[in-house]
Design a protein around this nucleic acid. Structure first.
Ligand code: FES
Ligand code: FES
Lengths: 144, 144
DNA sequence: AAAATAAAAGACAAATTAATCCTTTATTGT
DNA sequence: ACAATAAAGGATTAATTTGTCTTTTATTTT
């Protein structure tokens, strides 16, 4: 479904969101440990997300990654996926045609678009704030 | 969503199904041309599908690929995806946890499982026969 | 100012996926 | 039997994704 980059990215951001919710910044070491991902690789991913204003970062002692209150409420999972995997998942043809198109549909088009739209809506409607608060109520895991 | 292998495989099989519906066999050249895919690569994919009894093949003049009437009715898209991409798409965690599990769910689990199940059901309920007859009624495309 | 900390940046390396090319095997028609 | 046809099989190459390692830049504490 998603690339490894995107999987690690989503997990990392969710973890940062959780900590940001209690005003903590987290280092790349702490993140890689919490989500059980290759540290250097995860650092690269967070670099991209920082450039794209999904997360914020501060260098030096007591620095680290965090997400400001506004972003926490406005950033949805769809935004993260768009940055890391592009929008093929939102607009691409399930059978790999160059153009997904109602007028020139592949045999799976109408069935596939339905699934794709549901996925899109789900990602768009899931904000970091929702996930962060939800994780305080129920037990969820970012590694296993 | 699917690998290139799977995309080409699905398109190829749908094309073969269409032709088999009118008792025609098709060569790898005709297939690659019809679905606009790299010929040698598509040949490899069909080799796998032949081994897994999704399609049948006959060598030599007047040979080619085809799908027998029984397979046409019993083979669903889910079977093709399973052969070419494995079942990660049916059982894997959306955030890439090693194990997707109701008891130790990732933060996206319950929302993601719903999407995943819908995709699974769609693929399971779409048979080659349905696609082949459907394509005779409405205009669908296997390339663009 | 110097040392320590932590992310950013850049250059590589490894692994996987996508794709090609060449040879072999099976089948058919002449 | 022989030439032609078409898939099967094997080896190789190319491209992309995944992952590592080292250096640089920014910030803070002493
Ligand atoms: S054309 Fe294939 S999904 Fe739209
Ligand atoms: S644990 Fe992540 S989808 Fe089930």
């Amino acid at each position: 479904m998603f690339s490894k980059t995107c999987e690690y990215g989503l997990r990392a951001v969710i973890f940062i969101a959780l900590e940001s919710n209690v005003d903590k910044k987290v280092s790349i070491t702490a993140i890689a440990d919490a989500i059980e991902s290759p540290q250097a690789f995860t650092a690269k991913i967070l670099q991209q997300l920082t450039k794209n204003k999904i997360v914020q970062s501060i260098k030096g002692p007591n620095g680290g990654f965090f997400i400001d209150d506004k972003s926490l409420k406005t950033v949805a999972l769809s935004n993260i996926v768009a940055v890391l995997d592009g929008d093929a998942i939102y607009t691409g043809c399930g059978l790999g045609l160059h153009q997904c198109n109602d007028k020139k549909p592949c045999p799976l088009h109408f069935k596939f678009v339905e699934i794709r739209e549901n996925l899109k809506k789900m990602l768009e409607s899931t904000t970091l704030f929702e996930l962060a608060t939800d994780m305080n109520l129920k037990e969820y895991f970012l590694k296993n």
